[in-house]
């Protein structure tokens, strides 16, 4: 049997809101080490990789490895019924055809249970090699969200170029062009506002803004986003979920 209790149920709500427009359905894989998901969007241009560690849950039990197929829109409908301060417990029997979500309000006055039907989903997993990237950039997640939103009003694609002092986002379209530069700034007073660049090689790659805007829906999960770039490789856009795990997005370059 699988049973996991997340005291901060809002985390799960935020994860699902961040990925539900990108992927339609996915298998959630559970084993001893945690709860994970890997899925590509329908055009196979981007990939979502979620991992929530077992020790990030208040209680975690998984007797056998299980894979639970869910339609994200349906999962989202159910999780929207959980309060933001609720604890969420997920339960499923081995070989069961449903997963139960139990929501508990902070004072335990309200307990609700929702069962979601599981489905069989054929999923292809990709092997993502551990790579050393040419450049790793850590920027405030709200800043990244604003940049990709603003640039999408001008163009369809963005060139991200990283040098040792700054990261530059550039686009152009019918009405004109734009570029936004963020300088390295290791703010000690306000660490949440810092921009940090770790570079082996200057790099410049172009990506579709539509996908980056979709990834930015994960902003509420983390104060920072980490971009990992290498020449001719998909970019990694990574949100670290404090004490629990990570939500990573991969996007093939143009």
């Amino acid at each position: 049997m699988f049973e996991a209790r997340l005291a901060q149920g809002a985390l799960l709500k935020k994860v699902v809101e961040a990925i539900k427009d990108l992927i339609e359905d996915a298998n959630f894989d559970c084993n001893n080490s945690g709860f994970s998901l890997q899925a590509m969007d329908s055009s196979h241009v981007s990939l979502v990789a979620l991992s929530l560690r077992a020790d990030g849950f208040e209680h975690y039990r998984c007797d056998r490895n299980i894979s639970m197929g869910m339609k994200l829109a349906n999962l989202s409908k159910i999780l929207k019924c959980a309060g933001n301060d609720d604890a969420i417990t997920m339960k499923s029997e081995d070989n069961g055809d449903t997963i139960t979500f139990m929501f508990e309000s902070p004072n335990q006055e309200r307990l609700s249970e929702f069962d979601l039907k599981l489905m069989d989903i054929d999923s292809e997993h990709l092997g993502i090699p551990e790579a050393e990237y040419d450049a790793t950039v850590k920027v405030p997640s709200s800043e990244f969200q604003r940049i990709v939103k603003d640039l999408a009003s001008i163009g369809d694609t963005v060139e991200i170029s990283v040098t040792k002092d700054a990261v530059k986002f550039s686009t152009s379209g019918d009405i004109g062009s734009a570029n936004i530069m963020c300088r390295q700034n290791k703010s000690v007073d306000k660490p949440e506002e810092s921009t940090e660049i770790d570079i082996n090689e200057p790099v410049a790659l172009t990506f579709a803004l539509r996908y980056l805007n979709s990834f930015a829906k994960a902003t509420p999960l983390s104060p920072h986003v980490v971009l990992k770039l290498s020449k001719d490789l998909p970019v990694v856009v990574e949100y670290h979920i404090p004490d629990v795990g990570r939500l990573g997005f991969y996007l093939a370059p143009k």
Binding site: M40, V45, L126, P129, A252, K254
Partner: peptide, 14 residues
């Protein structure tokens, strides 16, 4: 306009 690659051209099956 630059073409959009698919992820399979970068990563193999797991």
């Amino acid at each position: 306009k630059a073409s959009q690659g698919r992820l399979e051209s970068f990563f193999g099956p797991a």
